[in-house]
């Protein structure tokens, strides 16, 4: 039973990590690319870390919770770095794809 849960978590994690990178690769402009990695990879790595915590807890029969530390750290830092990168991109006036709406809003910032 545990094996199945672990396998499922690892697969989900790897899949979402891949989806994040696919988004990074194929979306047309920087602001859209930003969405892929910040979301997909946090859940992807989160699921893999959860699998690791479960695995070491049951294999060594000793609670292994330090994976939680990396998970929390990633969940806190991913939005912060996304915010900073978006801010930098706005600062150097990076062009958005033409169909983006409300671009005029950015001029006030």
């Amino acid at each position: 039973m545990l094996e199945w849960i672990l396998a499922l978590l690892v697969l989900i994690g790897a899949f979402f990590t891949l989806v994040g990178s696919i988004g990074l690769y194929k979306l047309p402009d920087f602001f859209m690319r930003l969405h892929g990695p910040t979301k997909a990879t946090t859940l992807g790595v989160g699921a893999i870390l959860l699998a690791s915590a479960l695995y070491f807890t049951f294999i060594t029969e000793q609670t292994s919770l330090h994976e939680v530390l990396v998970t929390i750290f990633l969940f806190i830092t991913a939005p912060v770095s996304a915010h900073l990168m978006a801010k930098a991109a706005l600062h150097i006036k990076l062009k958005q794809i033409e169909r983006t709406q409300n671009v005029s809003e950015t001029e006030r910032f």
């Binding site: 990590t17 892929g36 990168m85």
Partner: peptide
């Protein structure tokens, strides 16, 4: 093509590296 794209790619690369390392540990 621009600098922010490269920074974002680096950011994604290190998150992927974490995933690979944890998988290796498993």
């Amino acid at each position: 093509p621009d600098l922010p794209d490269r920074i974002l790619a680096l950011d994604t690369l290190y998150i992927n590296a974490i995933a690979l390392l944890i998988l290796l540990g498993l």
